Amino acid sequence: MSCARWSISNRELAGFGGIIGPKVIGTVGTRNALVAGFLVQAAATVPLVFLGAGSGWIYVLLATTFAGGVANLVVIVGFMVTATSRLPDEEQGLANGLATMSQQIGITMGIPVMSDVATARIHSFDVQDAHAVLSGVSVALTANAAACFLAAFLLALTLRATERDMVRVSGWSLLDRWARDLGSSRARRAFRPQGTR
């Protein structure tokens, strides 16, 4: 029961990433926010590869999943901002729909793919015991971390660095909208530049 309460609290705290995402983007730009978000996710996933059966590992699990969850939501906000920036108002709905659809496709495909990786590793053992399951999960997490590192590398190479200036100068209304969608109105007011209403 105690672990369950910690898990629920961890998920709620990870949602903080959706609130701080606009602030991060407004400070460093969408490109740097996306790259940093993927790198943090990858770095948070690596310790999970070495998880053992001891009870002490629960603290590592909670800390890394929290960090990875926050980074993941920063990436989601950055992804949506990038997908809908520099578009006329009449195309915003279409861009948002396509971006959301691609995100849902990624979720739908990502979980089965990682499950297949883990299952293939588990069935490579003669006996599918707890050790085999732990090994399978470790291999899947390694693949997950590698995918995050690859995504960060590709974004650093391909996403235009000028996005930072565009977002910092004219993107506050867009960031404000994302803060409204993903966070509280109090958080949204905190992220407004000084001197604006």
Rank of each mutant, 00 (worst) to 15 (best):
L34R: 04
L157G: 03
R121N: 06
Y59M: 12
M80C: 03
P193L: 09
A151T: 12
E90N: 15
D116C: 12
L141K: 08
T64G: 02
A151E: 01
F50H: 08
R86K: 07
R180K: 14
L141E: 02
A43M: 11
I76C: 05
V49D: 03
S185H: 02
L159W: 00
V24I: 15
P22F: 06
G37V: 10
N144Q: 14
S185W: 03
L174W: 01
Q92V: 12
R180G: 14
L182N: 15
W6S: 08
D89A: 15
L98I: 14
A120Q: 07
E91Q: 14
R192F: 01
T196G: 01
F153L: 14
D181N: 14
M80D: 02
Q103G: 14
V70H: 05
A36S: 10
A118S: 08
S7Q: 13
E90Q: 13
A147K: 02
P47C: 13
T142S: 12
A43G: 04
V117H: 04
L155Q: 00
A130P: 08
S9K: 10
A99Y: 02
S185F: 06
A190V: 14
R160Y: 02
R186S: 12
V113M: 09
T196L: 11
D181C: 13
T84Y: 01
V75D: 01
A4R: 11
S185D: 07
A14Y: 05
F191W: 09
R188Q: 10
A156C: 09
F50R: 12
Q128F: 02
A118N: 06
V46N: 05
T100K: 08
M166I: 15
V70F: 06
N10M: 04
A14P: 07
A99L: 07
A140C: 07
S185M: 08
R164G: 00
T108H: 09
L159C: 04
S170W: 02
T142C: 11
V81M: 01
N96V: 13
I25D: 06
I111D: 09
V60C: 04
V81D: 00
M109N: 07
A14K: 12
V24G: 01
V24W: 05
W172D: 02
V35L: 01
R189L: 09
F191I: 15
G17C: 01
S173C: 08
G97Q: 05
R160K: 14
V137I: 15
E163L: 12
V167N: 01
Q103M: 14
D176L: 11
R86I: 01
R192K: 13
A132G: 10
